[in-house]
Design a protein around this nucleic acid. Sequence first.
DNA 1: GGAGTAGTTAGGCAAATGCTTAACCAAACG
DNA 2: CGTTTGGTTAAGCATTTGCCTAACTACTCC
Lengths: 112, 112
Amino acid sequence: MLNQTPPLDRVFHALADPSRLAMVERLGQGPAPVSELAQPLSMSLPAVLQHLGVLEAAGLIRSHKQGRVRICALEIQTLGRLDAWLAAQKSEWERRLDRLGDYLDAIARSDA
Amino acid sequence: MLNQTPPLDRVFHALADPSRLAMVERLGQGPAPVSELAQPLSMSLPAVLQHLGVLEAAGLIRSHKQGRVRICALEIQTLGRLDAWLAAQKSEWERRLDRLGDYLDAIARSDA
DNA sequence: GGAGTAGTTAGGCAAATGCTTAACCAAACG
DNA sequence: CGTTTGGTTAAGCATTTGCCTAACTACTCC
């Protein structure tokens, strides 16, 4: 249970490792136990756990214990934060294109 | 001029630093010289240049020299790659919700 | 042409990162 | 209950990262 929202750069950082990216993609298809997430990766289990810790700290996943099995699940709203950030950049970019369009229109009009 | 597309994790990594994130956001509003990008950051110019190198290697920006001034500009299509990745995760997630919805419908029907 | 300005390169350092092994804990199973 | 399985913790190491300073190059301006 996180008390605060991790900064965006920490979310990007969590996705900045191929193994962590792969695990997030797998979890997009549904919750999975640690051992399943670890299976395709050629690394030790403590290394996998460390990666999962990074993802959890970034708010990208959450996990709970079921007996001796730890189930991990994606936190989709954190991906939504990335989406929102991208949308903000896109709208800023489109505003620029609009202004450029207006400028080109004004030039065409003053030429006609 | 990059010969190959940087892997997604390298793009995420490039955004995983607050200073680099801030510079990308600034460039969303239009091209800017290095000195302007450096101004709000409290760090040495070589450090700024190193960060810009990371962004350029990740395909997020491109730059060119105008006399002694280096102008940097955003590569919006690389942000589009992130968008596409997020969209893929979202559609996977929504497919899961649809399947859950179907399952719940089937239960409601067999109860009626 | 000299001084100032904008950037570039090289080398170095401390901290962070991404692994490892070893030892341990806890649940499940026969 | 003993063994197996799934995970956890701690410590350590090599590499990477994110800075720095110093020295340099190149352009602009007077």
